[in-house]
Design a binder for these strands. Structure first.
Lengths: 213, 213
DNA sequence: TAATGTGAAAGGCTTCACAGCC
DNA sequence: GGCTGTGAAGCCTTTCACATTA
């Protein structure tokens, strides 16, 4: 399939999941994998796997399967995995600190370039490998480090203005952990992660409720 | 719309988002809201909002809008908000501790019923308002507290067996923070949250990459 | 007049099914 | 025989557009 065609967002969202499984296969010395097996590992349908892999330009061998290293190369390339991606985190509450200290990011090709908060009491503190700076320094840092991704971990009330600051500074993608819906321009990619929202969705699926009292 | 009809999963996933906006409107003393305004607050289309609200049995007044308190009642009911939902967390690493200490859950109708880990060194530690117990006690606790939701915050390698333990104990819904794809029966609801996955998705959207080297 | 409620159209995603190839 | 690659069918979701009603 041509490199020129646009990859659907649904496919993009599954690529990191394939990548995870592929890394495990590679770690287990498995060199060949079928769409069937990859489907089983990821909980998807095998036809879906084949279509997704075609989108990233990967090709397999009929009757055999796909080369694991080749798939790692193609999916990793699509996810810009070869270049280290600098990330800034805004909001140094409990969640922000946990994210700043999360070791998983480094191994996945991300680097925490800087941490920010508006609370002067927190500015200067060391969290993980970085020092907390004041939000006023955001624009300068984003420019210097060429950050395109910002993580929002502020309280809900501060999230929109922090998002605006990130966008004004040049960030083009925001991962929002604040429990609020953000308004951003359509040229900014936004993804939301909210633990309460996830739990509420699951709570809806509780078995038919016993009568309340 | 009849109570009997099944609400699509996509609609269920948006209900918590409406709920958030409705709580803010109510806090601001706004008693009436149009689908247009709710759409603006949530970043959705107004027709979508009206269809979703119809699914939960809410009704508005033509020419006027919806009653905020009524919407809060209907969406909250659908999300089982009136009953406190006990939740257990498995895995007391950095993320598990952050989740255990996250105050937002209590205000949303959830209660952390118990914390678990397999590491004997962590068992007995106090984290937030709860004491860490050994995973062996999971089944007994889930039964006693009638927990239907489990949160997984273990390392990837331990996640599947922990998930199996949760399901065996009677948990019917799992929120998985471990960076791995879990296999669970189709009678168990599963949602995944992975920071690395989210960042990788955003990384894909970086502007056309400058040539590498 | 202003906004709901909802069929119908449009668009997108998933699954099927099978030709093609190793 | 087995697995990829992909058109076609089916399903689901979103959006449009407008009749309807306070």
């Amino acid at each position: 399939m041509s490199d020129r065609c646009r990859i659907p967002e649904t496919t993009v969202a599954r690529l990191p999941v394939y990548l995870r499984s592929l890394l495990r296969l590679a770690a287990g010395q498995e060199r060949i994998v079928s769409s069937q097996r990859l489907a089983q590992l990821t909980g998807l349908h095998s036809a879906r796997v084949r279509k997704d892999l075609a989108y990233v330009g990967a090709s397999g061998t009929r009757g055999v399967g796909y080369d694991v290293a080749h798939l790692l190369d193609m999916t990793g390339r699509e996810l810009r995995r070869s270049q280290e991606t600098p990330v800034v985190i805004v909001g140094m509450g409990q969640l922000g600190r946990a994210l700043a200290g999360y070791g998983g990011l480094g191994s996945e090709g991300f680097r925490i370039a800087a941490l920010f908060d508006v609370d002067r009491a927190k500015v200067g503190q060391q969290v993980g490998a970085a020092t907390v700076r004041h939000l006023d320094e955001l624009a300068a840092t984003v420019a210097t480090e060429d950050c395109v991704i910002g993580v929002l971990a502020t309280p809900a009330a501060a999230a929109q203005s922090a998002a605006d600051a990130l966008v004004a500074a040049g960030v083009r993608a925001i991962l929002n952990f604040a429990p609020t819906s953000l308004a951003v321009g359509c040229d900014v990619w936004l993804r939301d992660v909210d633990v309460s929202v996830e739990l509420q969705i699951l709570a809806h699926h509780r078995l038919p409720t016993r009568p309340t009292r």
